[in-house]
Nucleic acid binder design. Structure first.
Length: 572
DNA sequence: GCCGTTTTCGGCCCGACTGTTTTCAGTCG
């Protein structure tokens, strides 16, 4: 069992306890431990082997026992026992937006609601209206929540399975009979959600490799297995395909399996016009009645055959990249190595896991030249946000740490909350003292479009605001973006020199690819920041950069590619 | 269930918002 599987079970225990109405601090303890284990870079099995489980913060004797049991037997008595209290399908209902443990418990006990179908039927019968606390609005909200759940429930978030895919890829590459291996599909295009995993391998021993693949420990169930193709269900949830081709077809197969489908069709169409046939085995030229292979070992061969330069996977959507390539006007996409610093992160001063010093040292290790510490403000209650006094204290503290740590500059910042009316929850006099001010919304998500737009624009007119954090507020698979007139917002951003954040955290990725392209059209500058709440959170930068690339962003569009002296000129 | 330069017991970040009420429970972060 890996970290995420263990964390999943701890979270499920917490879910069930919540439904049972258990002690909320106990529930919190399970969740806390799950969060730490999921986010920590170390393999929990290694920690188990060293008998150091209880050294993990948030893990005491009891949870350590559960983990030991899980690692040794794959099961845990506590979980097996409380699982009997409610069916899993009932627990899953709390994932519907607007439903929490209390409401789900009520629905289960009173109406025996066990599934989304049950729930929908009940709501539509209006029988709920007779009960205290359930009104017309509640009905509407539940139906909306169900719709959202259906819309998103089939795809996996990139950040949840990216590292799983990389891990499997590493194993494939390490196999002595494997020539080349790559992960294709939407993961290679770094799409924010992933349907399944596509692995491509070249080898002279296809049978051995397919066998090796279906017997990987990550595999739960073999669904199909042949000599050059296999399909499995992974324990983490998604399906995974393996395709084996000959080395001389690697490039063609890579292109074919990377997609997108729309992009591939467009490329093949150009090929047809030139008398070419393009498929996963190569590029073929028509000679009389026969087709003769003219390329396919490298991905470049495919593009070259249709007279185009190589196009980065992230923008292969057939949304203008082929036309741009034809004109020699492909964007020079920003890349991870261009990033000079990270301007949004939290520390123990609010809801982060690590100290300012630890974050700075980890960032320095990444080669960053600067970071900004941007803790929360009091409105976001759970986070123990910074009051004016604590802001001043933190500024002093950062000054001290800057003298200690060489080679990286720590900027004093804040993620100040934008209240419902658009004013900020710290006084201007305090904001003025900070190097960088990010303003974000964490409450009142459901305002009408006009009001929400006005709210953000009012915040952008505050002379101290530099960046708007996660500008649309969406949580992938969970919460829709706010109703917002982004074009209006971008106009003001351009005028006032406000930077729009590309929040790199994998369940946000906000701005998303489409809005990044829009912002670019308005000549709005952006910053790619992790919103890290722990050291491992800093690793999320790849997802932010990938999203920026999908939005055609270039180095010049992204402010945290600038050296410090130039960056500081942008801030007020 | 976890944790301790306020500690080994007794705390455990809590404010904003919504929808329902008319003072508050539930949800969210």
């Amino acid at each position: 069992m890996d970290n995420i599987e263990i964390a999943n079970i701890l979270n499920q225990i917490a879910d069930i306890l919540e439904l049972k109405g258990g002690n909320k601090f106990k529930i919190g303890a399970y969740r806390h431990a799950a969060q730490i284990i999921e986010a920590m870079p170390k393999d929990i099995n290694e920690i188990y082997k060293k008998d150091e489980l209880e050294k993990i913060p948030g893990v005491g004797k009891s949870i350590a026992d559960h983990i030991r049991e899980l690692i040794e037997t794959g099961k845990c008595k506590k979980f097996e026992k409380i699982k009997k209290y409610v069916p899993k399908s009932v627990v899953d209902l709390i994932n519907i937006q607007g439903l929490g443990p209390k409401k789900v418990k009520f629905l289960y006990k009173k109406f025996n609601v066990k599934s989304i179908a049950d729930l929908e039927k009940l709501v539509k019968s209006h029988r709920l209206l007779r009960f205290k606390g359930w009104g017309k609005k509640s009905e509407q909200n539940i139906l909306k929540g169900i719709k959202l759940y259906h819309k998103f429930s089939k795809r996996f978030l990139l950040g949840r399975i990216y590292f799983l895919a990389q891990g499997i890829l590493k194993k494939l590459k390490a196999h002595r009979d494997v020539d080349k291996a790559e992960v294709c599909g939407s993961i290679r295009r770094m799409k924010e959600t992933i349907g399944d995993l596509d692995f491509l391998v070249t080898t002279r021993k296809p049978r051995e490799i397919t066998n090796f693949f279906v017997n990987l420990p990550e595999v739960q169930e073999i669904r199909a297995k042949g000599s050059t193709k296999a399909n499995v269900l992974l324990r983490r949830g998604p399906l995974a395909d393996l395709r084996v081709v000959k080395p001389e077809s690697f490039g063609a197969a890579l292109h074919y399996f990377t997609g997108s489908k729309a992009h591939n069709i467009a490329i093949r169409k150009i090929g047809v016009k030139k008398g070419l046939k393009i498929n996963e085995y190569g590029v073929f030229k028509r000679v009389g009645k026969k087709f003769v292979k003219i390329g396919g070992e490298k991905e470049e061969d495919i593009f070259k055959a249709v007279g185009l330069p190589w196009i980065p996977p992230e923008i292969r959507q057939n949304t203008g990249e082929i036309e741009a390539a034809e004109k020699g006007k492909l964007p020079n996409l920003v890349s991870l190595k261009d990033i000079q610093g990270d301007l949004h992160m939290h520390t123990k001063w609010s809801d982060g896991e690590n100290t300012i010093l630890e974050m700075a040292q980890a960032a320095k290790k990444k080669g960053y030249k600067y970071i900004a510490i941007t803790d929360h403000t009091p409105t976001v209650g759970v986070t123990h946000g910074l009051t004016p006094n604590r802001v001043l204290k933190q500024i002093k503290e950062i000054k001290k740490i800057n003298q200690k740590v060489k080679g990286i500059k720590i900027l004093s910042g804040i993620e100040v909350d934008i209240r419902k009316d658009g004013c900020l929850d710290l006084p201007d006099g305090i904001l003025k003292k900070l190097d960088v001010v990010i303003a974000s919304i964490h409450t009142a998500f459901h305002l009408p479009k006009k009001e929400m737009t006005k709210r953000i624009i009012r915040a952008m007119q505050n002379p101290n605001v530099d960046i708007i954090g996660h500008p649309t507020g969406r949580i992938i698979n969970k919460r829709e973006p706010y109703q917002l007139d982004l074009e209006e917002v971008f106009k003001i951003a351009r005028k006032n020199g406000i930077v729009m954040e590309i929040n790199a955290f994998w369940n946000r990725l906000d701005l998303n690819d489409i809005n990044i392209r829009l912002a670019k059209n308005f000549d709005v500058k952006m910053s790619i920041d992790t919103d890290a709440h722990s050291l491992s959170g800093l690793d999320m930068m790849i997802f932010g950069v990938a999203t920026a690339r999908r939005g055609w962003a270039e180095k010049k569009d992204i402010i945290n590619t600038l050296p410090l002296n130039k960056l500081l000129k942008i801030f007020k």
